[in-house]
Design a protein around this nucleic acid. Structure first.
Lengths: 250, 250
DNA sequence: ATCCCTTATAGTGTATACATACTGTACCCT
DNA sequence: AGGGTACAGTATGTATACACTATAAGGGAT
């Protein structure tokens, strides 16, 4: 399929949403800045109707904020907001792990998770870890978390986790790439992988409290990465999400 | 202000949203049923543009589900979904209470909460409790929970709590009115009020774990109410939210 | 000089017409 | 008789014109 056809296959609304999200995350639209519908029309090239839907969706996503008198502005986040969002995700993933453990999961449904765990093991075993391996880790890590959440078998919970993780700085892999530039990188990856192993073990043995606790702690690794990366300041380009910070650290 | 003027003061979008929500919660639109935009236009009397926005908002709210090929249908919930949503709210409110306790709150900001606690005390002290008092309890209870959540001083967390609580069966007061018809009513209300007292105490003494645990347990009261009310089956009209149940219990 | 009022402008809210995609049915061909 | 295709009807997707509201700037009066 040609690129042109591929572009045609998605709706104008989705296209506008992608374009605007890109503008926001890349920092070309600054936090606090108002986005008028006409401006968004200019940016995206589609008409006001789909632009409006895209803006509503982005508000829902948490990237935009409604202005009381109408219209939208780019949402600004404090560092505290980001840390809280990470803690929030950890809490929800902890609940998912506890549900899985307490309610029990079949050996069969645990298989894909264990397989994923093995793949991650292969990746973190390298020393030093190549940039490609980091990239592969991000993908596989996202898969691991998705599988884990599904084990909760709770549609309302999964819905909320997906929602929180949609924030660019709250997803499980948000700051993994930033790690790749840090000296502590390998050690942190090994710690994270140990958490993964523990949570699978806990679920298998129906240890709800343990499963919940380790997932909460797991999210703290992301918080730690964030702080390290900000302090080092060297590889901010690996964390586009920080464009949303209220008083930019750059 | 006349009713006509009041109606004019809200946008067509909001009006459509209210009308459709009412239709869904009252059961006139059944779970799984598709809502076409034209049908929604007939129901609400506004044109397709605001109807569409209202449908998107209701999807976001969780009452509707997008159909892959386009359009929306009324979402159906299982009893498990409802119980999970209640647990979810409890977990989030627990996190809010822990944040408040760990980070500390000023005596001044705790005042409104204590005042609210006192008002609730007055209400539950009556025996038997009048229906009016039950109704007042619902209002005051909602206020207490809102104040508590604000003490977390975490915008991302409050946002999620509000979102989850917007589900008609997950809010802190969802099944309080149903209680009013139960013999166990007064006892359950007293238990709930004790939870309220404990969480304030825990926050004051910066006992994060205790504050979190009691809010989690607190949400279980709602789950208990739900089960009791369903078993008794006598006052289902007090719980309009149950219109969303997949295989209706009626 | 300052404050208020008027006016112009830009932006959102709404309605509607047109385009396109999907679905179900009926008819025809095999 | 069964299956496939074509067509009609209905749905959503999109563009645009018009209406109304908020806001800011400029001019006049005090």
């Amino acid at each position: 399929m040609s690129e042109r056809e591929a572009e045609r296959s998605v709706s104008q609304t989705v296209r506008a949403q992608l374009a605007l999200r890109d503008m926001i995350l890349s920092g070309r639209l600054r936090p606090g800045e108002r986005i008028s519908e006409l401006q968004a029309v200019d940016i995206t090239g589609v008409s006001r109707t789909p632009v409006r839907l895209a803006l509503v969706r982005l508000e829902d996503e948490g990237l935009l904020q409604a202005i009381p008198s109408g219209g939208f502005m780019v949402k600004a986040f404090t560092e505290r907001d980001i840390l809280d969002s990470i803690e929030l995700r950890g809490t929800l993933e902890g609940l998912a792990a506890r549900f899985a453990a307490e309610r029990g999961v079949s050996a069969r449904s645990l298989e894909p998770l264990k397989e994923c765990l093995g793949d991650l093991d292969q990746l973190v075993r390298q020393d030093p870890i190549s940039v490609e391996a980091f990239s592969a880790y991000v993908t596989m890590n996202a898969r691991f978390h998705a599988l884990l959440n599904e084990l909760s078998a709770s549609a309302p919970l999964i819905r909320e986790i997906d929602r929180v993780s949609a924030l660019p700085f709250a997803s499980p892999s948000a700051f993994v790439m930033a790690q790749s530039a840090l000296p502590e990188a390998h050690q942190i990856l090994l710690l994270g992988q140990d958490h993964h192993r523990i949570v699978v073990d806990a679920i298998e043995n129906r240890e709800g409290a343990r499963a919940e606790a380790v997932m909460r702690e797991h999210s703290r690794l992301a918080a730690r990465n964030l702080r390290l990366a900000i302090r080092n300041r060297t590889h901010l380009e690996l964390m586009p999400a920080l464009a949303l910070l209220k008083s930019s650290v750059e």
